[in-house]
Design a protein around this nucleic acid. Structure first.
Lengths: 170, 170
DNA sequence: TGCCAACCGGGGCGTGCGTTCCGTATCTTG
DNA sequence: CAAGATACGGAACGCACGCCCCGGTTGGCA
């Protein structure tokens, strides 16, 4: 790989990191290219599609988060800690709210991790049993998006956490 | 107003009602026109913008819902009943989830109604006091959207309702 | 240093959407 | 029934976006 190619690839990644964090996945690719001081064509020579670029940018952080989900003695606390971590990330950077929604292997891993944590928490009786992984993912997706619309992230998280714990209504 | 004009206006409203209910606000306007057996231009002669058509379609049901929010002795039950009604509507028709988001006077009225119910429920001590109207609206928006993504609407609603009731965490 | 391959920029293509325009058809009134 | 106002249809416009292509440039190896 030529030196300038590597340099440009890096410039694109830096610009994408910043803009995805600010505006989420919906930021136009031309804007990323412009911020990187590069033409759109150059972006596509390094990343075959916009999703691929997004995945490259979010990979490190999401993988780290997934890796941090190690089971402890308290399965309920594990799940809640993970959800809290996701909420924190999403509060600071707009791209975490999209990482759970934009199609990619990373997203699937994230969903799988959530499913595993949920199942263990339910076995331990810390979370109501009638919740599916789909429910949890949908709930989190809605919550993460809401955080960028003026709502109080901490309050939203607390509502969701205590809602998960409540026993089934008659 | 000419007779055929009135007839076409009605055909557009019928088609829009059905398609907005099925696919939400994002349905292309050309599709509505096609289903009504009419050209796109005709739609615009009766409704100045897509939002106006959407408002005309949802006005009746949303207004009825707002009107049904009459205060009783139990302010907490009033709020929960209203949220339940919204959830039911959104489960059946995709357009209710958008009515809370698409800019219009109707949306503002809906938000105001939610704010009023929330305030009374908080005074009565039925709902935690650190929730703002913005929080509630964001929460509902996320929940309503999630209902069309495979999640179980009843479970989602119960999570939100019990989350609202929980007292503040330390 | 010279040459060739690799790479670059950005104009351009295809698509989908909301909206507008205008020649034509249709309805109503006298 | 005729004339004028009114409404119609759908082609066309403007815009935004993801993505591709090509003439020109640049970097690394011999």
């Amino acid at each position: 790989m030529r030196a300038d190619a590597a340099r440009n690839r890096e410039k694109v990644l830096v610009a994408a990191r910043e803009l995805f964090a600010e505006q989420g996945f919906d930021v136009p690719l031309d804007e990323i290219a412009a911020k990187a001081g590069v033409g759109p064509g150059t972006v596509y020579r390094h990343f075959p599609t916009k999703q691929a670029l997004f995945q490259a940018v979010t990979e490190a952080r999401v993988s780290a988060m997934i890796a941090s989900a190690e089971p402890s003695a308290d399965a309920g606390a594990d799940l809640f800690a993970f959800l809290g971590k996701m909420a924190d990330e999403a509060t600071a950077k707009r791209d975490m709210s999209d990482a759970i929604a934009v199609p990619s292997e990373l997203r699937d891993s994230l969903h799988a991790t959530l499913g595993g944590l949920l199942a263990r928490a339910q076995e331990a009786g810390a979370v109501r049993g009638d919740i599916t992984t789909r429910d949890l993912v949908a709930l989190m997706k809605g919550m993460l998006q809401s955080m960028h619309e003026g709502a109080n992230p901490a309050v939203l998280l607390q509502i969701v956490l205590s809602g998960l714990q409540s026993s089934r209504k008659p």
